[in-house]
Amino acid sequence: MKNENPFDDLEIDPRLSGRELTKRIRKIIEKAPADERAEIQANWEKLTLREDQRIHHALLAHPRPESASAREVSTLRTNVPLPTSKLQNTAVSLTRADVIVWDEAAVSVQHLIPRYDQGK
């Protein structure tokens, strides 16, 4: 589609209220380089000039809860707390999901894991 959805363009949660999205976009524009600001401002205006337009765009945007944040994978990785030594005292069954998340870290704690479930 020629006209991108403002929520998709800005990569923010379409369920944010007007106030919340203003706060979010304010942070985005303040960090943005000068040549991108006009577009960010235009997107903000599309979402705030008319309430019915905000809803219209929200309905046409892909759901994007916090758990589907658009941040870089590398950033997301650094946000994930690593396993602690307390693991030793907890009986766990790992799933594929955990292993994916832990990646290299999983290798180092593998000896702590009694069972390892491949399926989901």
Binding site: G18, R19, T22, K23, R26, W44, E45, T48, L49
Partner: peptide
Amino acid sequence: SLHGEYQVL
């Protein structure tokens, strides 16, 4: 004035 910003309507 909207959430602390301004728009000319």
